[in-house]
């Protein structure tokens, strides 16, 4: 089953099957972000750059700022949700979104 993934509203939303699902402006705790030295970065998500899927995991690359150290930059692929039986399920990103591997493709 194919899933339509796209970035909408100038990078403000990840749309999954024509429904806005993941928004900018949330705080995400992410370990090991490339652009800052914090063990656990606390990132204000300011814009999505790309969305893709790896297996059943929906992933996004984004631009943001770590509120712990103040550094800004672009992340690698981070999981934002999972597709189960064609339905999108959100992930708890406030609690920690571990980076995932490369090779996502638009679904």
């Amino acid at each position: 089953m194919s899933v339509a993934l796209r970035i909408l509203d100038d990078g403000a939303w990840v749309s999954v099957d024509d429904t806005r699902r993941v928004a900018v402006s949330e705080l995400w705790r992410v370990p090991g972000v490339e652009f800052c030295r914090c063990d656990l970065a606390d990132i204000v998500v300011e814009g999505f750059l790309e969305v893709g899927v790896d297996g059943r995991t929906v992933e996004a690359r984004l631009y943001g700022q770590c509120i712990v150290c103040g550094e800004s930059g672009t992340t690698g692929w981070l999981p934002v949700g999972r597709i189960v039986d064609g339905e999108f399920y959100d992930l708890d990103r406030e609690g920690g979104a571990a980076p995932t591997g490369p090779t996502p493709e638009n679904g």
């Binding site: 402006s25 949330e26 705080l27 606390d42 204000v44 509120i67 406030e94």
Partner: peptide, 11 residues
Amino acid sequence: RGMKTRKDGEA
């Protein structure tokens, strides 16, 4: 300009 932060641990 709109942003987010934590205050007393809360977003």
